[in-house]
Computed example of a mutant assay.
Amino acid sequence: MADKSSADRILAAIRAIPPGQVAGYGHVARRAGLPGRARLVARVLRENADPRLPWHRVLRSDGRIAFPPDSEGFEEQTQRLRAEGVDVRQGRVRIAESVPDLDGNLDAALWKPR
């Protein structure tokens, strides 16, 4: 992936999150080879116009939806996650269960079967 831009690497990492799974902004950044660039992930998502991108699978590190409660984005993300079988309670997903830290093996942590 050395020839891809940072944005392309981030988008590829987001597209690789399987349905029913979630990842934090920081997890996506690390998966894209950009550790410590969680804010860049947020910016790439904000600027993205691809309606097929599974943006709804990306959450804050504590599992919270980043949109303000009662916003259209919050409602849409909640609905999309629930449609994939993700348990969303009060705007939060138990991200530790979805993406456990397996001693730094991010691929195994992100893409493990449910």
Rank of each mutant, 00 (worst) to 15 (best):
A2L: 13
A2G: 08
D3F: 00
D3Q: 09
K4D: 05
K4I: 01
S5R: 07
S5G: 03
S5C: 00
S6R: 12
A7N: 10
D8Q: 12
R9S: 00
R9M: 09
R9W: 07
I10L: 12
A12E: 14
A13S: 11
A13D: 03
R15Y: 12
R15N: 03
I17L: 14
P18Y: 00
P18L: 08
P18R: 13
Q21Y: 07
G24C: 02
G24S: 12
G24M: 10
G26R: 01
G26W: 06
G26A: 07
G26E: 06
G26F: 02
H27G: 07
V28K: 11
A29R: 08
A29F: 05
R30F: 02
R31T: 01
R31N: 07
A32V: 00
G33C: 05
G33F: 13
P35W: 10
P35T: 08
P35D: 11
G36K: 06
G36D: 00
G36F: 04
V41S: 04
A42C: 04
R43E: 04
V44T: 03
R46P: 01
R46V: 00
R46G: 10
E47P: 00
N48V: 02
N48S: 14
N48I: 02
A49G: 06
A49E: 12
A49P: 01
D50I: 08
D50L: 07
P51R: 13
P51H: 14
R52M: 08
L53K: 02
L53Y: 12
L53S: 07
W55C: 04
R57Y: 07
V58C: 09
L59W: 07
R60H: 05
S61E: 09
S61C: 06
S61M: 05
G63K: 01
R64C: 01
R64K: 15
I65M: 04
A66R: 13
A66M: 12
F67R: 10
F67T: 00
F67E: 14
P69D: 15
D70P: 00
D70W: 14
D70F: 14
D70G: 10
S71A: 08
S71C: 02
S71Q: 15
G73N: 07
G73A: 06
E75T: 15
Q77R: 12
T78M: 12
T78S: 15
T78G: 13
R80C: 04
R80I: 02
E84N: 11
G85D: 13
D87Q: 15
D87L: 10
R89A: 02
R89D: 08
R89E: 06
R89V: 09
Q90G: 05
Q90A: 03
G91K: 04
V93G: 01
R94M: 05
R94S: 05
I95P: 13
S98Q: 15
P100N: 08
L102S: 11
G104S: 05
L106R: 03
A108Y: 08
A108R: 15
W111N: 04
W111E: 10
P113C: 09
P113S: 11
